[in-house]
Design a protein around this nucleic acid. Sequence first.
DNA 1: CTGAAAGCGCTAACAC
DNA 2: GTGTTAGCGCTTTCAG
Lengths: 337, 337
Amino acid sequence: MATIYDIAKEARVGIGTVSRVFNNHPSVSDDTKKRVLRVANRLKYQPHPYARGLARKRTNSILAFIPFFSTFFFVEVLRGVQAGLHDLEFDLILYGVNHPDHVENSLKRNALRGRGDGLLFCSMRIPDDSEKEYLPENVPVVLIDTVHPSFDSFYIDNKQGAVAATRHLISLGHKNIGILLANLESYPARQRLEGFRTAMKESGLPVREEWVRRSSSPYLDGFNRETGYSLMKEFLGKKNQMPTAIFVSSDIQAAGALSAIEEAGLNCPGDVALVGFDDIELAGHMGLSTMRQPMFQMGSMAAARLVERMKDPLLEPKQTLFVPELIVRKSSGVTIG
Amino acid sequence: MATIYDIAKEARVGIGTVSRVFNNHPSVSDDTKKRVLRVANRLKYQPHPYARGLARKRTNSILAFIPFFSTFFFVEVLRGVQAGLHDLEFDLILYGVNHPDHVENSLKRNALRGRGDGLLFCSMRIPDDSEKEYLPENVPVVLIDTVHPSFDSFYIDNKQGAVAATRHLISLGHKNIGILLANLESYPARQRLEGFRTAMKESGLPVREEWVRRSSSPYLDGFNRETGYSLMKEFLGKKNQMPTAIFVSSDIQAAGALSAIEEAGLNCPGDVALVGFDDIELAGHMGLSTMRQPMFQMGSMAAARLVERMKDPLLEPKQTLFVPELIVRKSSGVTIG
DNA sequence: CTGAAAGCGCTAACAC
DNA sequence: GTGTTAGCGCTTTCAG
C-alpha cells in the first residue's frame, strides 16, 4: 500500500505538497498538482483514514445507536440517516442495540473516545445525569424518537397522535370506544393512553376502564403481535359488552387483533372498527387506518442536523416535534348509526 | 481527554507499561497493573482507536456494503451480520448502497485503504476482473447472496427453490400453472424461471408461454408490488384461459397480485392458487405460501466467517449454498380435483 | 518486569 | 509555492 512518502518521492516533491494536494489546499501550482495526482493515481494511493484522523483530531465518521429489535422502525430511521449523510462525506458506524442495557457498554467503549465525530441515538432514553458521564465531551449528539433539553431532538407527539386517532373514531359516530395498549412501562404507551383519555373527555365520552386493556408483556414493551391477539381475545370474550371501536397502540398489535377478530368470525370495520399507530408497511396491506410516524424524515433530518452541528458546535439545541398524520383506510369503517 | 501519557505520569510508570496493561500483556506485575488500572479508571481513559489502528496496522472494524432498496431483505441480513459479530469485538461500518453503481465509488474511497479489516458484500455482483482492482490486497472478503469462486460465499439456490415451489403446486393437483416473474435482467429471476421449467418438465407438464409473464420494470428489477399487480391483471384479463395456479417470483409481487385478485372479485386459493418466494414478514400476514430464504442466518454466518478469516487469512474460500424452505400457508390451497 | 525510543501515515505550522 | 519538522496517541522492539 502506497504512503504519502512513496508519492512524494515518485513525484519529486515533499510530503507536505502531497498532503496539500489531497486536501485541496489552494497554494499548490497546477503543474505539481497534476504531477502528484498522476503518480497517486498510478500507485492507487488513498490517504489513510486513521492517520488522517489522528493528525486532524477527527474521525469523519458518526456513530449511530439504534435498537435492532423493532425491525420496521429502525429500518426507516436508518435509511433516513443514511440519506441525510450527504452520500460520502461521513462513515456511518452502526451499533445495533439488541437490548437497552447494551448501550452503556458500547458507549463506554466507543463513544467516549474519539471513535466518532458525532453521535446519534435512536429511541434511547438518556438518563439525565448518570450516562451523561459516558458521553464524550465535545462531541455533538442528536436524538431521534426521544427528547432531552440539552440535545437536538427529533421526536413524535404521541399524545396528539392518540388524540387524533381517537377523534377520528369519535367523528365516525362511535361512542363506545376502547383502547388496546402496550406495556405501560413504555413512555410512548403512556402518552398514547393519555391522548386517548383527553380526546374522550373533550367529547364528553366516558372511558370504561374494562375497555382499557394493556399488556404486561416485557417483549418489546408489549408492542408485539401476540399482545394484540390476546388482548383482542379478551375484548371478544364479552360479546355483549364490546366497544364498537378500538384504538390500538401500534400497527403490529393491530395485526394480531385483526387475526383474533377474523378467528372469532367477526368482521373488522363492521363489528369493531380499528385504528392503529405507526403506519408500518403491513398497515397498507391490511387496510389499517393508522397514525403515520415520519421515521425516514426524522432519520434524515437528524443526520443533517448532526452534520450541521459538527460544523458549528455552538448551535443552540433544537427540539423538533412531529405530529403523526392520520391515514384513513378500511379498518376504521364509515360513519355509523 | 486523557492519553496514555497522562496515565503513565500519574501512575509513575512508562507509557509502555500502560500499553501492556491495556493489551493484557502477561509480563506486568499485578501490582503495577492494578495501579495503572485505578488511575486509568479515575481519568476515564480509553485507548484511542485510531492511534491504535495506526500502530497496529488494523482497524478493528468491518465494512458492509448492503443494498438499501430492498428493505426487508437487507434488514434481516443486517441483523444477522450484527449478531455474527461477537457483540463488541468489531465495529460495523455500513455503506448503504442505494444504487448498484455507487458501490464502486464507495469501494474506491474506503475499502481500498485500510478503512476496514474485512469486507462484506451483500447482493452485489463482483465483476470478475474490473472491480477486483478496487479491492484492497490482503483484506478478506465475504459474499452474501452472490457467489464468486475466489471468495467465501453464502448464497441461495434460486433454481431449487423454484423447483420446490412449482412441485408443491403440482403436488396439489394443478396442471395449468403459470409464472409471474420479475425482470429477467435479474439473475435470481432467471434462475427461478429455470427452476419452474425444470419442475414442469419433470412432471411432463407443458409450459404455456403466454402464462410466463415477466416484468420489464427496472425498479428493483421488477421485484415490486406494482409489477405483481399489473402482471396479475394481465392474467386476469383472459378469464377463460387462466392458469389454476401461479408461482410468483417474490412475495412482494404476490402482495400486488393478491390485490388484483381481490379487486377482480376473485378468491385466492379458490380461483387461483399462489406461491411466492422470500417469506417476508408480510407473507405470514397474507397467508401466502412461499419459499423461505434464511437471510438472518446468511448474515450471521457470513459475519462469523469473516471474523474467522480475519484471524486466519489462509483459509480456503468456501461456498455455502442454502436451499429455500417451503412454507405452506393458505394461498396455495388444498388438493384440487 | 519495565522504561526508552522508533515508528504507524498523515496534517499543519514554520521557514524559505 | 514548497520542503521540513513536530506532533497526533498508541504499539512494539530493544535494552536493561
